[in-house]
Write a protein that binds this DNA or RNA. Structure first.
Lengths: 224, 224
DNA sequence: AGTTTTTGTAATATTTTTGTAAAATACCCC
DNA sequence: GGGGTATTTTACAAAAATATTACAAAAACT
């Protein structure tokens, strides 16, 4: 059974979420503040963390930073729940390592769906299996990409870009995130580099190119 | 039992309303001026406030401002009762945070109906509930909207507009309120921008489009 | 009924965002 | 350093989103 850690201070929402997730077959542990959550995380192994960004005491974003930097828990997927839903907040949360984002109010169906896709993604990644999505196969050892049997020759940057996309399908990446992970930049810059590479990548992927969707005002992500 | 606070100076109307609401199963507390009402609100927890705008002493609008800024009572829904022809006052009241309005003279059935819909909304909102209304589901994380299973593609402005409507069904919004919250303007302007977007939104929602009602001279709101 | 006001919406204009070819630069390997 | 490739930047086209305009339709008001 999948274990979920819920970090949320509002008791009404907490109860509602717990009730619904348990009904859906998840085991839920909850904390009403970030400090407690951190302590509990040392003892309990959870598969996913649901985090409200507006918490008393230690702020949600700080909590996220700590989780992402602590051995043993740094790889647990985190889904943000927040009343703030300005573009800016979404981008910030994603850039601090959140896996997905759910503005309040949200429907339980959508929450459950998100949990499931994040879990599926997690399992897949752990298999260490050859990276494959929608018929695009990536051979990590030889840095080669195949689609419909034929090889697609990608440059290094293109390969890294595609790898990020394909290792987390359905996940949204901001342009800055891509610049960080693929290019190693850490400042915000407003170049068209990402767009340019997405463009050539799409072209090289041929008809499959359009699985790379542009997410208006945010960035890119792959999706069926 | 639901408690109602009635703030009304005319004794005839007051008695009439009290009598009828009690007959409908509400518990009614009344005050004939705003100061008394404020004092009483500190002691009694009420579910809804009926406010006559034309009061002696402290004006109704000031009372509304105080209520909306005082912890503990700021979330109590307020329904404005106002003599007819005071369009301007109604707009001002809505923009000061009133939930609905009722022009005098009004029938008791309509008053009871309004009270009930406002109460129903209150309960719903507290659950932190899913953003869904009349079969229109909104997925905040990906800014996607579904209706009857199919996705409806909305632009950001359209999405924000719909979100506001759907998070408070039956609530009336003035054009300026919408301009403030969705567009971030804070001055009064007389563009047709809101109308234009409402129009495209209605069209995109298809048959469900007509849940967005236009409230003559005031603005818009969704309603079954 | 005629006039005025208000709302609906198509059409147009403007702005913003994204796509991409091509030029410019950097990199790499002899 | 030269030739080739990879990468970044530039510049502009294309597309999408948004705002405005203009006018028809509806409603409200004499």
């Amino acid at each position: 059974m999948n274990k979920i850690m819920l970090v949320e201070d509002d008791p009404d929402i907490r109860d509602l979420v717990i009730y619904n997730l348990q009904k859906n077959g998840f085991s839920v542990t909850s904390a009403d503040n970030a400090n407690d959550a951190l302590i509990m995380l040392d003892d309990i192994k959870v598969d996913i963390i649901l985090l409200d960004l507006m918490l008393p005491g230690l702020k949600g974003m700080q909590f996220l930073d700590i989780v992402r930097n602590r051995e043993g828990i740094k790889n647990i997927p985190v889904i943000i729940i927040s009343a703030k839903n300005a573009e800016h907040d979404i981008i910030t949360a994603l850039e601090h390592g959140a896996d997905d984002y759910l503005p309040k109010p949200f429907s339980m169906e959508i929450l459950a769906a998100k949990i499931n896709t994040v879990l599926r993604r997690g399992v897949k990644a752990e298999e260490g299996a050859p990276l494959e999505y929608m018929g695009i196969k990536m051979d990590g050892s030889r840095r080669k990409v195949f689609s419909d049997g034929g090889e697609i020759r990608l440059t290094h940057k293109e390969y890294e870009l595609l790898k990020i996309f394909i290792s987390s399908p359905n996940k949204i990446f901001t342009r800055n995130q891509l610049l960080n992970t693929v290019w190693g930049y850490d400042s915000e810059s407003m170049t068209r580099t990402v767009d340019s590479h997405v463009s050539t990548l799409r072209k090289k992927l041929g008809p499959k190119g359009d699985i790379i969707k542009s997410i208006p005002k945010i960035g890119y992500g792959v999706e069926e």
